[in-house]
Amino acid sequence: MDDRTYRRFTAELVAWAEANPAVIGLVALGSMARAGRDPDEWSDHDFWVVAETGAAPTIRDDPTWLPDHERIVLFNAETEHGRNVIYDDGHLIEQAVFEPSEVSITRANDYRVMVDKGGIADQMAAIAQATAEESAGRNRAVSFGRFASQLVIGLTRYGRGEELSADAMIKHHALGNLLGLLGRGHAGELDSLDPFRRFELARPDLAPPLLEALKGPAPGAATAMLDLAAEHLTDLEPNTPELRTTLRTLIMRVAR
C-alpha cells in the first residue's frame, strides 16, 4: 500500500471512530502510530478500538465499518478480542476491540492515541510503562536457560526423526530467546514485544551468518546459535563451557 492510500485508510478509520457514539477511543500501534518509524509499502494497519460497555462484541464482529470492506477476502477471529483482516491486495489489518475494563490486559510499546473521548491517553500511558518495566525486568539468565533447554528439546526431536518439530523448537522458540539476549542494548531499533522484528537492522554484524545457518538442517542452526552465545553472552552465569560442550556433543550425536 502506498503512503497516500495508507494515510487515506487511516483517516477513514479516525473519522469513523470520531463519529461513532459507541466508540471511546482509537489507538494506532506499530508503524501505524508513526512513533519514530513511518509505514512503508509492506506495513499493515494495527490498531485497537475501545468501545462502550456492551458495544464491543458488535463492533468486533462486523467488518462493514472498515474502509473498503467490500474488498475483504478474509475476516478471522484471531483471539478473543482480535480480528485479522486480509484485503484483495494482500493488505493486512490487525485489530482488537475492547471495552474500557479490558484494555488493562494489553501490552504495547509504540502507539499513538488517534481518538480519545475520555481516559484513553492515561490508560495507554500506564500500559506502555508496564510493558517497558516488564521488558527491562526480564531475567537474562532465565532466558538463556530457556534457550539451552529448547536447543536440547529440538535436538532430541531431530534425533528421533521429528524434523518439523525440531525446526520449530530450534529455529523459532530457542532463536527467539537468543535474539532477545543478543538485542539487549539496541532497544531503539528492536521491538520489545517481538525479538525477531528488525534484528537485521539492529545487529547487521550477526544477522547474515545466522540467516544462512537457519536455511540448513536444525543441527547446523543450533551450532551457529551456540557459537553466537559463546562469543557474545559469556557474561551470563549459566553459559558455562561445560554446558556448551554438552550441547555440542548432543549436536554431533544427532547429526550423524
Rank of each mutant, 00 (worst) to 15 (best):
Met1Gln: 09
Asp3Asn: 13
Thr5Gln: 06
Arg8Phe: 03
Thr10Trp: 15
Trp16Thr: 04
Ala17Tyr: 02
Pro21Ile: 03
Pro21Met: 01
Val23Ile: 07
Gly25Met: 00
Leu26Phe: 05
Asp40Ser: 03
Glu41Cys: 14
Ser43Gly: 05
Phe47Pro: 01
Trp48Ser: 11
Trp48Asp: 11
Gly54Ala: 05
Ala56Asn: 07
Thr58Met: 15
Ile59Lys: 00
Ile59Asp: 00
Arg60Cys: 02
Asp62Leu: 08
Thr64Ile: 07
Thr64Gly: 05
Pro67Gln: 03
Pro67Cys: 02
Asp68Ile: 12
His69Trp: 10
Glu70Val: 07
Glu70Gln: 08
Leu74Pro: 09
Phe75Leu: 12
Asn76Arg: 09
Asn76His: 12
Thr79His: 10
Glu80Val: 13
Glu80Leu: 15
Arg83Leu: 01
Val85Phe: 02
Asp89Leu: 02
Gly90Tyr: 00
Gly90Val: 00
Gly90Ile: 01
His91Gly: 07
Glu94Ile: 14
Val103Phe: 03
Thr106Phe: 00
Asn109Cys: 10
Tyr111Gln: 05
Tyr111Gly: 01
Val113Asp: 04
Val113Trp: 04
Met114Glu: 04
Val115Leu: 00
Gly118Arg: 01
Gly119Arg: 11
Ile120Gly: 04
Ile120Ser: 00
Ala121Ile: 02
Asp122Phe: 00
Gln123Asn: 06
Met124Asn: 01
Met124Gln: 05
Met124His: 04
Ala125Phe: 01
Gln129Leu: 13
Ser135Ala: 15
Ala136Leu: 01
Gly137His: 03
Val142Glu: 13
Ser143Gln: 15
Gly145Phe: 00
Ala148Trp: 03
Ala148Tyr: 04
Leu151Ile: 13
Val152Asn: 06
Gly154Ser: 10
Gly154Trp: 04
Leu155Cys: 06
Thr156Gly: 04
Arg157Ala: 14
Tyr158His: 13
Tyr158Ala: 11
Glu162Ile: 10
Leu164Lys: 09
Asp167Phe: 13
Met169Asn: 11
Ile170Lys: 03
His172Val: 14
Leu178Phe: 14
Leu178Ala: 08
Leu179His: 00
Gly180Ser: 01
Gly180Leu: 00
Gly185Asp: 09
Ala187Trp: 11
Gly188His: 06
Gly188Lys: 08
Leu190Gly: 11
Leu193Glu: 12
Asp194Tyr: 11
Asp194Leu: 13
Pro195Arg: 00
Ala202Leu: 07
Pro204Leu: 10
Pro204Gly: 10
Ala213Val: 11
Leu214Gly: 11
Lys215Leu: 07
Lys215Gln: 09
Pro217Leu: 10
Ala218Phe: 07
Pro219Met: 05
Gly220Ser: 15
Ala221Tyr: 10
Ala224Ser: 06
Leu226Gln: 02
Asp227Gly: 07
Asp227Cys: 05
Asp235Trp: 13
Glu237Cys: 10
Glu237His: 12
Pro241Arg: 02
Pro241Asn: 05
Thr245Gln: 14
Leu247Cys: 08
Leu250Cys: 10
Val254Ile: 12
Val254Leu: 09
Ala255Trp: 06
Arg256Cys: 12
